[in-house]
Simulated assay, not measured.
Amino acid sequence: MKIDSLERLLVHELKDLYSAENQILGALPKMAEAATHPELKAAFKEHLEETRGQVKRLEKAFEHTEFGPHGEHCPACAGLIQEGEEIIAEIEAGEVRDAALIAAAQRVEHYEMAGYGTAVAFARKVGNHEVADILTATLEEEGETDRKLTRLAEKVINFRALAAS
């Protein structure tokens, strides 16, 4: 698809987000398995369920365009996920790994928030308010996930990682 308009740029962003979310679906179970703190495991499992809903929302957003969701690969998300896999491979299970997993997960969340925020702005500008509303719901979820991870890191995990050092 040639990107020659804001509408096509919006579709490109949607396809990128769709690829990213599907990659995240594969990464979250590994992160949950690698986490040792029960609240962190639960947070990853909860976000896995949210991500499944986000994929469905993106599919619904595509119904308001002339395009389907497939055809893009998000290399940025692949790189972020690779970083998380390296954490799992290189850091021994425990509090320090849990702190690193939160950092890796938040990098992914911030990438997603940037993507969704941009796509919402594009959708509004081209007058596709249905897509904007669908994406805004996911943007809000991603922000809440980021805030939950921050609270868990600041109130529990980082203290335990420091004590374990």
Rank of each mutant, 00 (worst) to 15 (best):
I134C: 02
A89K: 09
M31L: 10
A20S: 10
L152H: 01
E141H: 07
N22R: 14
A137S: 13
F44C: 01
T36G: 13
F122M: 09
Y116F: 11
E13D: 13
V11S: 05
A121N: 07
E142S: 09
Q54S: 06
H64W: 13
F122Y: 12
I87C: 10
A121L: 06
K30G: 08
A32N: 03
A103M: 12
L10Y: 02
I91L: 07
G115F: 00
G53W: 11
G71R: 06
E86R: 12
N128I: 08
M1Y: 04
R151Q: 10
A103K: 10
E50K: 05
L9C: 05
A42D: 06
D4S: 07
E130C: 12
H70A: 15
I91F: 05
F67S: 15
I24H: 01
L6A: 11
R147K: 14
A100H: 05
R57E: 02
E46C: 10
G117T: 02
Q106F: 05
A119K: 03
R151T: 15
H37F: 09
Y116P: 15
I157L: 01
R52A: 04
K30N: 09
L139N: 01
R52S: 05
E63Q: 14
T118E: 04
K45G: 15
V156E: 12
N128R: 07
N128K: 04
E92A: 15
F122D: 02
R97S: 08
A32P: 01
V55E: 00
K56G: 13
A123Y: 00
E21H: 12
I134V: 12
V96I: 15
E86K: 12
E83Q: 13
R124N: 09
Y111I: 09
Y18S: 14
I88A: 04
A114Y: 03
